[in-house]
Design a protein around this nucleic acid. Structure first.
Length: 570
RNA sequence: CGGUGAUUAGCGCAGCUUGGUAGCGCACUUGGUUUGGGUCCAAGGGGUCGCAAGUUCGAAUCUUGCAUCACCGACCA
């Protein structure tokens, strides 16, 4: 490609709307342009990268035995009513009507369509297992699109769905997909981790997320500093502290604490670490048949955070998690939120494992402006149950039993689920077994955010000059950059010849034939991240040499013109 | 959806307090200059100041409403 015939569209200045580095660089390097909130046009350079990611994903999915299909982006509402998600999905599902006033949705995912397809096409166990994927535009009406294509409303996704007669068969495909995902991210040249995940709203049993590690990531991942263990912080189990609880050494004391409300206040007032205090949160419990919903107390150590997912999974607590209002708090404990404590509470009290391990701690006294010190479980506070209800923090023992927890940020680029029978059951998708009986199928589903990967790759591979593409997804492998070609006939001739040779060899080459100053050309190619620059100038032509510059390492070297093709022999 | 802020040339911004000819830098066009790291000089083109209503002789500027965009929280590839 010649730059003179290309849409380079590089920007010197950073558009103000771009927050994260990948978004800034994608705009500056001319990869994408914003059309509306969360919707982007892919320019030629960006599309080349997107297609490369797509092709790696496609190749590895096919290698793993998945069959490519293409389903419509617009789907009839009937299907969604059948699965129950017309009700469940909420406003993220963009609904529309056609000219006949029939309802449709813009597909945020394709479980309904594929399950319907399989239910129509497959009737015998002999046709199973079956695994199909597509690479297609999805639309989710995100509450808050941000970070460019990282969280767009319209985005390119690879989604795969597998169908099985039983859990064993699903396990095998799940493992095959897990392995395929590892190969995909290996080939893309990304630093990633598979992590144990919450199954979220899609529901189901086993689930792993694949995260690209980057400080700008939106998810917290908990790792073991020793083993391979990695889990989403929401999912990571917080183990009980080792050993038995220390003995009580202090007596219970009531202390007047005017204007001491927050944990920080309490710790400062008593001159203790927040870890020696507990906070007590009141949330709504599950209503029984004849009663209104009761209030339930949750107790965590002052330095810990409540994990809402873990709490919602408790039988006593209402879903979704709802905090008690100030009026309900007053009615229940007769004090303000800042002075609640577990001593003498006559409601359900659920204590986190770490909080339950404390002795001689400090908590609210259920009287305004009063706290207890020297509190001890069983002696002072009784009738409670102990559960894991907090987020893990750095330094906690790893749930795998080896090492301690380290927390890093990740960008979720892939997610695999074992769905179970949820959709197959709702949409009556079954086959006749060997015994001639109808059996509902078990499903798995496997997603990869293709457009998000492009942004994630940049987050992980850039410097102050611009993008440093991993070789596998660079839009061009090499740039031919002639110095002052307009004035030097032999520079021009050498550059043209090299360009033709490289093209003839099937190498993706961009030839900067603009009448620009060298600095402009260098800046543009470094911004766009082309891995290799061939610089042709009068300076080295006397020796029949050109300069080769490696974008990733920054190394420069001289090379005989006759040896240029040897750069690409691999 | 809640909280915050923004909207003036393709991009980045000033002007608004105190109403009176719409400006700067980058980009773009033309000519010259320069040519191994975003040259320099000169001349030019480009704006219903987000939309609507109101106040006023007169509104980018004041008032009200709406829209859009972005940031902080709850959702997800």
């Amino acid at each position: 490609m010649r730059t003179s015939q290309y849409l380079l569209s590089t920007l010197k200045e950073t558009p103000a709307s771009a927050e994260v580095i990948s978004h800034q660089l994608m705009l500056r390097a001319g990869l994408v342009r914003n059309v509306a909130s969360g919707m982007y046009t892919w320019l030629p350079t960006g599309l080349k990268v997107l297609r490369k990611v797509e092709n790696i994903v496609r190749e590895e999915m096919e290698r793993a035995g998945s069959l490519e299909v293409l389903m419509p982006m617009v789907q009839p509402a009937d299907l969604w009513e059948e699965s129950g998600r017309w009700e469940d999905y909420g406003p993220e599902l963009l609904r529309l009507k056609d000219r006949h006033n029939r309802s449709f949705v813009l597909g945020p995912t394709h479980e309904e369509v594929i399950t319907k397809l399989v239910s129509n096409e497959i009737s015998s166990y002999k046709q199973l297992p079956l695994n199909m994927f597509q690479i297609q535009t999805k639309f989710r009406d995100e509450i808050r699109p941000r970070f460019g294509v990282m969280r767009g409303r319209e985005f390119l996704m690879k989604d795969a769905y597998s169908f099985h007669l039983g859990a064993d068969c699903l396990d095998k495909t799940y493992q095959a997909m897990f392995d395929a995902y590892c190969r995909i991210f290996d080939r893309l040249g990304l630093d990633y981790r598979p992590v144990i995940a919450d199954t979220g709203s899609i529901g189901g049993d086993a689930s792993h997320e694949f995260h690209v590690l980057a400080d700008s990531g939106e998810d917290d991942i908990a790792f073991s500093d020793v083993s391979d263990f990695a889990a989403n912080v929401e999912k990571a189990e917080a183990l009980a502290p080792k050993g038995t609880r220390p003995e009580a050494t202090q007596t219970l004391a009531e202390v007047s604490t005017p204007n001491v409300r927050t944990i920080d206040d309490v710790a400062a007032f008593f001159k203790v670490d927040a870890a020696n205090t507990v906070k007590t949160l009141l949330v709504m419990g599950v209503a029984s048949a004849d009663n209104e919903a009761p209030v339930v107390a949750l107790v965590v150590r002052g330095d810990h955070q409540l994990n809402e997912i873990k709490v919602e999974n408790l039988a006593q607590v209402a879903t979704p998690l709802t905090f008690a209002t100030d009026e309900q708090i007053l009615a229940t404990v007769n004090c303000n939120a800042g002075s609640i404590g577990p001593v003498g509470l006559n409601i359900d009290v659920i204590v986190d494992r770490s909080a339950a391990h404390l002795a001689d701690f400090i908590c609210g006294a259920n009287k305004n402006d009063v706290h207890f010190s020297g509190v001890n479980w069983d002696r002072d506070a009784t009738n409670y149950s102990v559960e894991d209800i907090r987020n893990v923090v750095e330094g906690d023992p790893s749930p795998c039993g080896e090492g301690n927890i380290v927390i890093k940020r990740g960008i979720e680029v892939g997610h695999i689920f074992q769905l179970g029978e949820k959709y197959a059951q709702a949409m009556k998708c079954g086959v006749l077994t060997e015994a001639g009986k109808n059996q509902t199928l078990t499903m798995g589903c496997y997603g990869i955010g293709v457009s998000r990967i492009v942004a994630a790759a940049i987050e992980q591979n850039h410097d102050k000059y611009g993008i440093k593409w991993p070789e596998a997804i660079a839009p061009y492998q090499v740039a031919v950059v002639p110095m002052n070609m307009a004035k030097s006939a032999r520079v021009k001739e050498t550059a043209e010849t090299l360009y033709e040779q490289l093209q003839a060899a099937g190498i993706e080459v961009i030839f900067d034939d603009r009448k620009e100053r060298p600095g402009v050309m260098f800046a543009d190619h470094e911004l766009m991240g082309t891995p290799l620059l061939l610089v042709i100038g009068e300076r080295n032509l006397d020796n029949q040499e050109i300069e080769v510059k490696n974008r990733i390492t920054g190394e420069k070297s001289l090379l005989a013109i006759s040896d240029v093709m040897s750069l690409f022999n691999s």
